[in-house]
Amino acid sequence: MTKLKLILGGALAAGILASAPVMAWNEGGGEKDEATKIYETFKKKTPEELAKIRKDGIAVYEICSACHLTEGWGSKDGTFPQISGQPATVIIKQLADIRAKNRDNPTMYPFALPKEIKNAAPEVGGGPYAIAAVARYIENIPMNPDPGVGAGTDLEHGAKLYKDNCVKCHGENGEGHKTKFFPLIQGQHYKYLLRQFEWIRDGKRRNANPDMIKQINGFTEKDMKAVVDYVSRMKPASDKVAKSKDWLNPDYD
């Protein structure tokens, strides 16, 4: 009897251990995979085709810009995140997560729906292509040179924490990892980072990566603020950032 239980349990465990964490964090399938695939095909497009894709991205992004601003820079108070410069793959995944209610976001929820994306830009449609096109547009918008930062009183501690706990996923300089869906976090507004970090720690953000949750287990309030302050001050590569904090996106006026 016990033997049977063990065998059964073992078989179950093997299957589940292999699949459960991946499934929960980055479930495959649906619109997300399709949009990601379409995005991959953009690499082989001609300049003329890319110009059309860019134009479609601009048309869809107009609705997003009402909150994230035409520059994609969000707000220092952390209400709206900066999304400019974020890898398209991450944007596509986050949109799918918001739509699937893995992120608790009543304000943005309708705008992640194909129906509203289609209404916003009927000529582009609301399917995976529209999502791929807007994601590509957003990742190429120059980033905010002047994001909100923390108190700046504990940066050495923050730097050490970052090195020991975050580099392997978010990269040396917070640049993230495109193909692994690890977000770019460099130069994000401090207050937004802090909120997301807390929500990930406390399980309020249901799409959080289980390995990250493990990694930050045991972080105190002080640790959290220090590392996030450090991250908000990380400078993206200079060709990713706008020349001036007064830059306005000329695609909209």
């Binding site: 300049p47 003329e48 890319l50 110009a51 860019r54 134009k55 601009i58 048309a59 869809v60 107009e62 609705i63 009402a66 209404n119 916003a120 830009a121 009927p122 000529e123 990742e139 190429n140 918008i141 120059p142 590569a237 060709d239 990713k240 706008a242 020349k243 830059w247 996106n249 000329p250 695609d251 909209y252 006026d253």
Partner: peptide
Amino acid sequence: IIQANNTGDKMAAAPSKQASQPVEVAKPVP
């Protein structure tokens, strides 16, 4: 619909954007 397709004047401004688009500068986008 929220007018996202008011293609009129806003698109005309696009070319000036090319220079500040980090990833796209290299490509000769018309």
